[in-house]
């Protein structure tokens, strides 16, 4: 995996570029979710790799997004689902550019055990781009604050939410 700073800044940038403002903070949460679900356990208990591995695959992440969206109110459910799912898939998309000794990303699990990677860089190579990510992160943050303060971007209330219904979870 690239470091979470890389994932976070990429997701934040994508969110800023997306003109219709449909991506909320749930998108950012989705962008770090695959690593949050898998890395702490594999660092502390390496033998748990295969237990948590499905949580870093498209099918597993789809199910986790279903679970998360079912835990929020019905009014925001579809917005949360698509935001977290898009964020998580962006994460997986970035991860496949990496190289590993034995392969780590089983995109077609559980239908195939073939690990798919582009082998462009080693996981820690993203650290060499850290100054760029920090500058970009600050740029996006300042740009957002500036646009909101100067009225160029007035967000509607609860902009990622769907219509209210009486059936709240």
């Amino acid at each position: 995996m690239p470091d979470l700073l890389t994932h976070l800044v990429t997701a934040y940038g994508a969110r800023e570029i997306e003109a219709r403002r449909r991506l909320s903070y749930w998108f950012l949460i989705g962008a770090v979710l695959p690593d949050i679900l898998t890395r702490p356990t594999t660092i502390v208990l390496p033998w748990t790799f295969w237990i948590t591995m499905p949580f870093h695959t498209p099918i597993g992440l789809l199910l986790i997004c279903v679970v998360i969206s079912l835990l929020v109110t019905r009014r925001v459910r579809s917005g949360v689902f698509f935001n977290v799912l898009l964020g998580a898939y962006l994460h997986v998309g970035l991860d496949v550019f990496q190289e590993h000794i034995a392969g780590s990303y089983y995109l077609f699990f559980p239908f195939s055990w073939k690990s798919f990677e582009v082998d462009l860089m080693w996981p820690e190579d993203s650290l060499y781009l850290m100054p760029l990510w920090v500058i970009l992160g600050i740029f996006f943050l300042v740009r957002r604050v500036y646009l909101e303060r100067h009225g160029a971007r007035k967000l509607p209330p609860n902009h990622h939410e769907g219509p209210r219904t009486s059936e709240e979870f």
Partner: peptide, 11 residues
């Protein structure tokens, strides 16, 4: 190790 700490800070 630095990458792990950086990721925690990003979190």
């Amino acid at each position: 190790s630095f990458k792990i700490w950086l990721s925690l800070a990003s979190l």
